[in-house]
């Protein structure tokens, strides 16, 4: 009864979901590095995600990640470290977006303009790069082999930096993000926190680009926060839940991608998205958040 079409479908499924040799691969040092990197990224992304969602910064994060791609592409062409280029590009974008005007419409249009230009420039820079194509593709979709021990050290340092900063500014940042008028009245430096938070996002984004790729940074910096917001209004519970979703997506996605040898970003995004769907269904069933 097997038609050729079914056979192809089975092939594709077999390719997507295979655990042949996953055990052996897990013993490899580069795989351990990748898993550690994924776990660290899940921690910081999960901590930031609820506030990114609360501040309505999804588009800004997307713009930041595209500029990380531009910076990485420029670094590739210039022969310097891609991570350094990505950090430079995204921090610059983060600062610009963090200092942007107050109106949503103005912010949207400026982010769109900068994003489009940055993406175009990045494509051009990649086209000029004479090296291997896999390096180019890695920037967009992420690549497991791109995590070496140097990356890992930088990742550990930045994770500590971001978590320490968040521990200090969390309360005023939550106040400024959810209740800006009263926050200003109580003396919270709202205008200072905005670019500071944008730089934290930029650092995490720059780290995420080599792992999940510029295109899919949103999957770990937005989806966990958006998912958590569907089931709880408690900032603490939302943060814990976002970290859990980000960890499951990143670590789980990495493991699943091993045997098939495919880019991890698809797996990560899919797991995160499934997490979002589950949270939406639970939220609706509990009537916690009305749908409009």
């Amino acid at each position: 009864m097997n038609s050729p079409m079914d056979a192809t479908a089975n092939d594709v499924l077999g390719k997507l979901f295979s655990l042949d040799g996953t055990g052996d691969l897990l013993a490899q040092p580069f795989v351990r590095n990748a898993l550690l990197a994924a776990a660290l990224l899940g921690l910081v992304a999960g901590v930031l995600a609820p506030l990114i969602v609360a501040r309505g910064m999804g588009f800004a994060v997307h713009g930041t990640s595209e500029l990380a791609f531009t910076g990485g592409a420029a670094a590739l062409l210039l022969g310097v470290s891609v991570s350094v280029g990505a950090v430079a590009g995204s921090v610059l974008a983060g600062l610009v977006f963090g200092l942007l005007g107050l109106r949503q419409r103005e912010r949207d249009s400026v982010i769109g303009v900068v994003l489009a230009f940055g993406l175009g420039l990045g494509v051009l820079l990649l086209a000029l790069y004479p090296g291997r194509a896999s390096n180019k593709f890695g920037l967009l979709t992420g690549s497991i082999v791109s995590v070496d021990s140097t990356n890992l050290q930088v990742l550990v340092v930045v994770t500590i930096l971001v978590l320490a900063t968040m521990a200090v500014i969390y309360r005023p940042l939550l106040f400024a993000s959810t209740d800006p008028e009263v926050a200003v009245a109580r003396g919270v430096p709202v205008r200072l926190l905005s670019p500071l938070f944008a730089v934290l996002i930029a650092l995490v984004t720059a780290l995420a680009v080599p792992i999940v790729g510029a295109i899919l940074v949103l999957s770990v910096t937005i989806i966990p926060g958006a998912a958590a917001a569907r089931v709880t209004a408690s900032p603490v519970v939302a943060t814990v839940l976002a970290v859990v979703i980000a960890e499951v997506a990143l670590v789980g996605g990495t493991v699943l991608s091993l045997a098939p040898g495919l880019p991890i970003s698809g797996y990560v995004a899919t797991i995160a998205f499934l997490g979002y769907l589950v949270c939406r269904i639970i939220g609706r069933a509990r009537g916690q958040v009305r749908t409009g």
Partner: peptide, 24 residues
Amino acid sequence: PEDLPLRARDLVGLGLDGHHLGLG
């Protein structure tokens, strides 16, 4: 906003120490 990620007690708590640094 309907989807503001705060419970009633969180909003009140911010009035107490939302302007302080640290996790408290």
